[in-house]
Simulated assay, not measured.
Amino acid sequence: MDTSQAPAPQAGQDTDKAPARLIDFELAAKTAATLSTPGPKLTGAEVQAVVADLRVHAEASVAHVHQISGLEAARDLRDSEVLIVDRAAWARANVHSFEAMIDAPLRAAAAKHVDKLSGASMEIGSRVTAAEMGAILSFLGSKVLGQYDPFAPLKRPHIPAAGRLLLVAPNIVEVERELNVDPADFRLWVCLHEQTHRVQFAAAPWLRDHLLESIAELVEGMLSKAESFSDRVGQLASGKASLSTLLQDEDDKAVMSHLTAVMSLLEGHANVVMDGVDASIVPTVKTIRQRFAARGADRGPIENWLRRLLGLDAKMRQYADGQRFVSAVVKEVGLEGFNRVWERPEHLPTERELHHPSEWVERMGA
């Protein structure tokens, strides 16, 4: 299986002068890879066939996203690398993405709050938090089918500036077997969803930096007001508490509300695009949808507990809110009217507008 990964992060600074690191990201990556399970057994020939097939479907799906979404950014899009990975490689890649997103604001916060940190507690805390992060990602790595990662280039200069598309081959094979669906159709169906996220960031090239700025503001806001600085870092990185329980004031809550609305928009839009996939694109799409939707009812008690702990079910509800918003706006003003959302940050919906789509339409003058 093609499990290409980027090289380890480079220091970039004199370690004697650099602010302390609150999370040992390399330990997190090693932990995630060590705890990851391999997934279904495949022969060497089967692995090669799956990798080649997924690459074909990843390429073909872009044109379909263009047709359904009406976004010109999807026309012959070739801005990102496509990696077919195993579970361990996916987990490592996500550690690196978290590093790109939160390491800088964590370092900045640490520099401002040196008085709250001791060398010994920092070292222990950074390793404990890293182990927790790695364990969580190893669990998620056995569930996720694919992901578009726009943040990878920030720590991996060799990656195309737009990011990379990750398809987790063992999970795709495992689910298609579990559901007993046509492999070619299922693989294209998965690629369509993930390529939609790639197209979103291509249509809104400002979106990555906008998200990074919002995340940095949220991290700094939470940690600067924390009663126990290192404990807050651990909670933030390990998922022991939801973000809402860490928010300290109205400014923090406003940033979190904005991020919630943006993430709901991205997932909701991807779901709407997927709803536009018919039998002319994926012949057995109706069967795939029905069986995939029913799959959640078969989760065991441990998995359900972990999902609640990590807030995954809450995220799914947020995505449903985003889907209703996109569907309502498209119904009222059409695809062209909705696609104004990708033009600039000011066009992103607020969390209130997410639940009241007509207010966004009115604000846009559509």
Rank of each mutant, 00 (worst) to 15 (best):
M316I: 09
K315W: 01
D103Y: 03
Q147Y: 00
S244K: 07
D79Q: 15
E217K: 15
L243I: 05
A270Q: 04
R317L: 12
P170N: 02
Q13S: 11
T284L: 01
Q13A: 13
V50L: 08
A111S: 15
L354E: 10
A297Y: 01
T15R: 15
S358F: 05
L265P: 00
G146E: 04
F25H: 14
D298L: 03
K143W: 12
V95T: 08
I288V: 07
S80M: 05
A130K: 02
R340F: 00
S238T: 11
V95G: 05
V255Q: 07
W305F: 11
H258K: 14
R291Q: 08
S242L: 11
V144M: 04
E351Y: 00
F25C: 13
A202N: 03
I23A: 06
A320G: 14
K240Y: 08
V51E: 14
F186L: 12
A28W: 00
E72H: 12
E132T: 10
V190W: 02
A93I: 11
A328Y: 01
D24H: 09
D249G: 12
I288Q: 02
S142Y: 06
P153M: 13
G44N: 09
M274G: 13
G334Y: 09
G276K: 13
V82Y: 09
G134D: 01
G141H: 00
I172F: 03
L207I: 02
T260R: 06
A58Y: 01
T196E: 01
A88Y: 04
A237F: 07
F229C: 08
G337H: 06
L71A: 03
A63Y: 00
G146N: 04
S138G: 01
R156L: 06
D14I: 13
F151H: 15
L117K: 13
M133S: 04
A293C: 08
Y319T: 12
P105M: 11
G239T: 05
L22K: 08
P150H: 07
K253N: 02
L22H: 08
Y319C: 11
G276H: 13
L259V: 04
V219R: 00
L354A: 11
Q67D: 12
I102L: 15
A104R: 06
K116I: 03
G337K: 09
K155N: 07
N171P: 02
T37Y: 03
R75C: 04
K331H: 13
K240N: 13
L117G: 11
L211T: 00
K41P: 05
E362I: 15
R344A: 12
A109F: 03
G296C: 01
R307L: 10
L309T: 14
V272E: 01
D185I: 06
S121Q: 15
